[in-house]
Amino acid sequence: MQPVIEVQGLSKHFGTFQAVNDISFTVLKGDVYGFLGQNGAGKSTTLRMLLSLITPTSGTINIVGQSLSENRTGALRQMGAVIEKPDVYKYLSAYDNLRLFARLSGIKPTQQQLMQQLEMVGLAERAKDVVKTFSQGMKQRLGIAIALIHEPSIVILDEPTNGLDPQGIADIRNLILRLSREMHKTVVVSSHLLSEIEQVATRVLIIDKGKKLVEGDATTLFDPAQAIVELTCDNPNAALNVLQQSQWPQYLQPQRQSHIVLKMHRNQIPALNAFLVQSNIAVYSLQPKHSLEDYFLQVTSGAQHVATYQY
């Protein structure tokens, strides 16, 4: 698949505070790319950098092959976005807002086209009402309609379900799926809730404290049988040596402190244990971390030491 967003070594400092620290990732055409992290993890800052709302301290961003810093307008033409709250002009109607943003994007849609757009987000009936009277969910849908008005190939939605009731959340979820499946848009969606990402994303990036933790395929990441296994033993170096000269090296992950980390199916754990014991390694513990959810919970519960894994 063709990469549509390529991010390399992206960092952002606000004074001494490092909001984003050397993040790299790639979004492929057709992805629903889940962007997962706690509040304050740097999701919003990263997405704003993708949209040139914030200038990176370092790093490069390419949008559909063109550099964002060199061709900002061209890159923005490829993207539509709703960042945080979908704030629009409250004193204007939904229709007038949509028309205004269309013209800001340099296009002049017909009345019919505008109404179709509103219909797609379920706001056709309220087209002429001023936005002041809208619920949060309606504003969010209007925001998405505005993001889509110049027909971008990439749609970026930052925490689109924040503050919505269950029905609103379901509406947005369905809308995201439609964008991807029917309209063939690449969607980047961020959230601090795993459950939301899990239901829509094809690929996932997890960041914490500005750093990338995991990037990978959602089907693999969300497979409950897949486990991250942490090995604690008397002699980690010897253990690593033994493992590298056996049938196990393909499961090895970057080491973290005194732990050796492996990624494998749960069923394989007893065999691994047997092998280590046979190799005279005193195993203190072999701890399977259940799937992404466990992992993410660990992150979100504020664990101090979390390694970066590549799935």
């Binding site: 704003r48 949209l51 040139s52 709302l53 900002r72 307008t73 061209g74 923005l76 033409r77 993207m79 539509g80 976005a81 709703v82 960042i83 945080e84 709250k85 979908p86 704030d87 629009v88 002009y89 409250k90 943003f101 800001l104 994007s105 340099g106 925001g143 505005i146 993001a147 110049h150």
Partner: peptide, 14 residues
């Protein structure tokens, strides 16, 4: 203040 700034500035113009 209205929050429209970030929506407006994601539109393709300089």
């Amino acid at each position: 203040n209205m929050g429209t700034l970030r929506l407006v500035l994601t539109k393709p113009f300089s």
